[in-house]
């Protein structure tokens, strides 16, 4: 961050100008600040308004319903042509994932078993051998 920086460009001046015009300490900025506070209050009230939230929720639900119907329609059409749908591919992916997981579990168990074997082997080596009785 301490590297020498290139000189100011036109964009720097433009941006600084906008910054000044909206600075709460500058005369035009005071006006902007008042506008900002007022709009924030409106949005804050809206975000907590029961009526707005109900309408927004209904709008969202309608969007979800349309999307679901379009997807279901497309899948039905593809099924009619006996073509694999996204749902079919996903079901296959799930099966593949389950296979992968099973393989991973076996690998982990094998690693743990090998670790345990290595420990037993080390213990056996560390134990002094008793002389064999005739």
């Amino acid at each position: 961050m301490t590297q020498p920086r290139p000189p100011k460009n036109l964009l720097t001046h433009l941006v600084t100008g906008i910054g000044y015009l909206t600075d709460p300490k500058s005369p035009p900025g005071k006006l902007f600040n008042r506008f900002e506070t007022a709009t924030s209050k409106v949005f804050d009230r809206l975000a907590r308004s029961h009526t707005f939230l109900r309408i927004a929720g209904k709008g969202l639900n309608l969007g979800f319903m349309v999307r679901r119907s379009v997807t279901a329609g497309a899948e039905a059409w593809l099924h009619a042509w006996q073509a694999p749908t996204l749902g079919d591919v996903q079901a296959m992916r799930t099966q593949l994932r389950q296979l992968g997981d099973r393989l991973e579990v076996t690998q982990t168990q094998l690693e743990l078993a090998l670790d345990a074997l290595a420990r037993v082997e080390a213990d056996l080596r560390a134990t002094p051998r008793l002389p064999e009785t005739p």
Partner: peptide, 14 residues
């Protein structure tokens, strides 16, 4: 809140 947001509809759609 359930009266505003139907999470089932969202997950089922997306």
């Amino acid at each position: 809140r359930p009266e505003y947001f139907d999470v089932d509809a969202m997950v089922d759609a997306h």
